[in-house]
Measured scan of single mutants.
Amino acid sequence: MAAGGDHGSPDSYRSPLASRYASPEMCFVFSDRYKFRTWRQLWLWLAEAEQTLGLPITDEQIQEMKSNLENIDFKMAAEEEKRLRHDVMAHVHTFGHCCPKAAGIIHLGATSCYVGDNTDLIILRNALDLLLPKLARVISRLADFAKERASLPTLGFTHFQPAQLTTVGKRCCLWIQDLCMDLQNLKRVRDDLRFRGVKGTTGTQASFLQLFEGDDHKVEQLDKMVTEKAGFKRAFIITGQTYTRKVDIEVLSVLASLGASVHKICTDIRLLANLKEMEEPFEKQQIGSSAMPYKRNPMRSERCCSLARHLMTLVMDPLQTASVQWFERTLDDSANRRICLAEAFLTADTILNTLQNISEGLVVYPKVIERRIRQELPFMATENIIMAMVKAGGSRQDCHEKIRVLSQQAASVVKQEGGDNDLIERIQVDAYFSPIHSQLDHLLDPSSFTGRASQQVQRFLEEEVYPLLKPYESVMKVKAELCL
């Protein structure tokens, strides 16, 4: 049975990233139509530049190519590739079939990587351009969430054990800070992308030097003109047959890092959902379990974690691919890159769409948070109580021993009897502590235990987050809708 299948058929496997999760716009960027249309555009740009620099290419040939950029006979191309065992030459023939007058000058002087690699770089750039505003929107939604809850005390956790208090907004800023680093890295790697350009079979530009009869300047002009037509500021000066596969490492490393950030955020949300302090959106008709109707599973956060793990592992592909590119190139890269580049971007696209949807509907339960604080705060307040007693004339050592005994009794009630923490009640009825009984409410005010959390939130948002989001103001209103 021949390899390949009808990918629109229910009898043929289709990647869930495309069929179930990723956005239509990201799927289109990695589609065959987008790819092969870009090949034709690159052939047109090459012909236009070659004509401008004096090669015998007519206006009629150029116009014929322009008129057929979208006229792609995919069936013919597939048949040609089956016959020739070469995808680029299959599309040269297919393009030439609908451009008979231009057929002889299509791909003039070029090698397969002229269309293959340059198209990949265009796709990487455009895919990054799709991700950047999506990530900015996630940051914006979380920034709104953090600002609104900047002063809401909550129990902090280290080692997932109760620690000092923080605020809900401050905790959210930990998430935002990681995503801001990801946004900066995505922008950097996007701006650092260079075009492969017009380089020939081993990167020496020998074929173009021959076409222009040894004119170095025209060869350099050709490279520059096509690079500018493709919208790049610069091209690699040095290439082998391909652009260095280190570029793929750079791009997928940034995406993998984004995956790590999203995994951490969504894990926190899942843990908070278990504590009943916070939940992701839950639709009115949504079913959490087929057997347990009360369940409210954090399905979206779980999906993000599941896909983020996949995204983090994909960076190993370009690392290994770059390491086995012998001399000017081997074909070890080809099949692998067809999979890992598309999957990385479709996965990143999915987790950003999902995280935006989550961040637009996060639900906080202040009463649950308050109750958990009441359970733990008495123990945390013991040092403040000791200091207040010393100020009232008591002995630190005597007070410490009193607190120690009462704390152990209260802990026994919590752990052995399943009761509430009654340390404060014990202190309130103990005559030894009568000098500070009137101060206990103040000493137990949760806001006095959150330090500068709310001020940190305000400063972080104003100095770091809002300036970073400013270039994306025009796209901030787009909502994230999930079908599944």
Rank of each mutant, 00 (worst) to 15 (best):
H107T: 02
H107N: 01
G259W: 01
H263Q: 05
Q456H: 08
F282I: 14
L211M: 14
Q184S: 14
G169W: 03
R337N: 00
Q51Y: 07
C304L: 15
G5T: 15
D248H: 04
P318N: 02
V413T: 14
K170C: 03
S447C: 15
Q428W: 13
Y114M: 05
C305P: 02
L331I: 12
C27R: 15
L275G: 06
S257D: 07
L444D: 02
N274M: 12
G240P: 06
G214M: 07
T242V: 10
Q41C: 13
A77F: 15
T154P: 01
P378M: 03
K75H: 12
L311M: 14
S334Y: 03
L222N: 02
R40P: 03
I424Q: 15
L142Q: 04
R296K: 06
A322N: 07
L461Q: 04
P378T: 07
F157Y: 10
P16A: 10
R245Q: 09
I122K: 02
I427S: 05
Y13K: 08
Y114E: 06
M312G: 04
D144G: 15
Q221A: 14
I122T: 06
E425Y: 14
D216T: 12
P162K: 00
C305I: 04
F208I: 11
K187R: 13
A127I: 02
E148L: 10
D6G: 09
G451M: 01
S474R: 15
A308M: 02
Q61T: 09
A18K: 13
L183W: 08
L174V: 14
R171Q: 00
L362E: 07
A388F: 03
E425L: 10
F95R: 01
E220L: 10
C99L: 11
E279R: 01
L84H: 07
R296W: 07
T239W: 03
Q409V: 10
Y114R: 00
S207T: 15
K415F: 04
Y472H: 13
C266I: 02
I265P: 01
M312L: 12
W39K: 00
R137N: 14
I176F: 03
D129R: 09
N274A: 09
W175N: 04
C98M: 10
S290F: 02
Y13L: 14
H159R: 01
L222W: 01
L211H: 06
R194K: 13
M89V: 05
R309P: 01
M181S: 11
D248R: 04
L55P: 02
K187S: 13
G394A: 10
D191I: 10
R459E: 12
C98T: 12
H437R: 10
K402Q: 08
P100K: 13
Q61W: 06
E417V: 07
P298M: 07
L255C: 14
R141L: 14
N71H: 13
F212S: 06
C483E: 13
C27Q: 08
E50H: 08
E360T: 04
R459K: 11
T38F: 08
S412Q: 13
Q409A: 13
A90G: 15
Y432H: 11
A344Y: 04
Y466R: 14
D59W: 09
R270K: 02
D11Q: 09
N384A: 15
T154L: 08
D349F: 05
V247D: 07
R309A: 06
P24Y: 12
T119Y: 11
A143C: 07
K477E: 14
S151E: 10
L275H: 10
F232N: 02
N357L: 05
G451V: 04
L124G: 06
V251S: 09
I403R: 01
D191T: 13
V219S: 06
L319K: 00
M299L: 04
F74C: 15
Q63E: 11
F236N: 06
H93K: 15
H91D: 03
L255K: 03
I57T: 04
D268M: 05
